[in-house]
Design a protein around this nucleic acid. Structure first.
Length: 265
DNA sequence: AAGACACGCAACCGCAAACAA
DNA sequence: ATTGTTTGCGGTTGCGTGTCT
């Protein structure tokens, strides 16, 4: 379900006294383009600088009009959850769902750690999926006759992660200081023409009027081009032989399986 | 047709950890 | 060692959309 953007205030073109006020709410396609272009073309070291610099790509237009009035935090969130080129766009598969359940069982609600083990998925996405679907289903399954009131499903009980689990979590491919990493990679891509389509948004002269749907499509294009250039070497869980039925019920089996998957760790 | 309700997703909030000065 | 800044995380909320009555 794609929400129709309401975009908080009147959008990037607001020239009122509110112009310097920090924006909240949904991101407009223009904001997305500016953020993406900023990360793609500029060497930045912090998210707050991304927020300050994005929107200054078009020097002939007023900064007041174009400045991306978002907090660094908001920029980071938008990038991580939506703009990142390596994100999967398709719905979570049955197999991925099994992995989520299994990982949640062994790690608890450590969504970022779980997401780190699921290429192309974000912690927010997994968290939402868990809260809106799996959790509900497990709750229903836990009380088939409706006898017990709101039992905590076994999979939801907080589990203190083992050291081993913590260590294997380090397979995350997203470094803590991500902007630098992203810019280095994207700069290389720009050199190879990998994301040339994304740069068009920053040219100002022909800023495309993107709809929500177009926004999604453009994301797919970026994903494809990045994938072609082997930017990020994620594994696809769908290509793995994941013995979910076995692993989910055997303590330690998940970690053993992962050790096989990631022998370097 | 329209109102009520449920659902799913995007984004915000507050806190803690990591880092820099 | 201390303080300020930035980042990352998990919980929660708000709102658009779909479904039901």
């Amino acid at each position: 379900m794609v929400r129709k953007p309401s975009h908080g205030d009147s959008g990037a073109g607001d020239l009122s006294t509110e112009a310097n006020k920090e924006r909240k709410g949904l991101w407009s396609p223009e904001e997305d383009e500016r953020l993406f272009a900023q990360i793609a073309y500029h060497s930045v070291s912090t998210w707050s600088s991304v927020a300050q610099l994005a929107g200054k790509l078009d020097s002939f237009q007023s900064d007041l009009v174009l400045r991306l009035r978002r907090s660094g935090k908001s920029c980071r969130l938008r990038w991580m959850n939506y703009l990142r080129p390596d994100l999967k766009k398709e719905p979570i598969s049955k197999r991925e769902e099994e992995i989520i359940i299994s990982l949640q069982q062994s790690l608890g609600n450590r969504w970022s750690t779980i997401a780190a083990r699921m290429p192309g998925r974000t912690d927010n996405e997994i968290k939402n999926y868990w809260n809106s679907r799996i959790r509900k289903r497990l709750n229903a399954a836990a009380k088939p006759d409706g006898a017990s009131a709101e039992p905590v499903p076994a999979a939801e009980a907080k589990v203190e992660p083992t050291n081993e689990a913590t260590e294997t979590a380090s397979i995350s491919t997203i470094p803590a200081r991500f902007p630098v990493f992203a810019c280095q990679l994207l700069d290389e891509l720009v050199g190879g023409g990998g994301i040339s389509s994304a740069g068009g948004g920053g040219s100002g002269e022909s800023t495309p009027s993107t709809t929500s749907t177009q926004q999604q499509n453009s994301g797919d294009e970026r994903e494809a081009s990045v994938g072609d250039s082997n930017m990020i070497h994620f594994l696809s869980f769908d290509n793995l032989d994941y013995p979910a039925d076995l692993l989910m019920d055997v303590p330690g089996a998940m970690d053993a399986w992962e050790s096989e998957l990631y022998p370097a760790n």
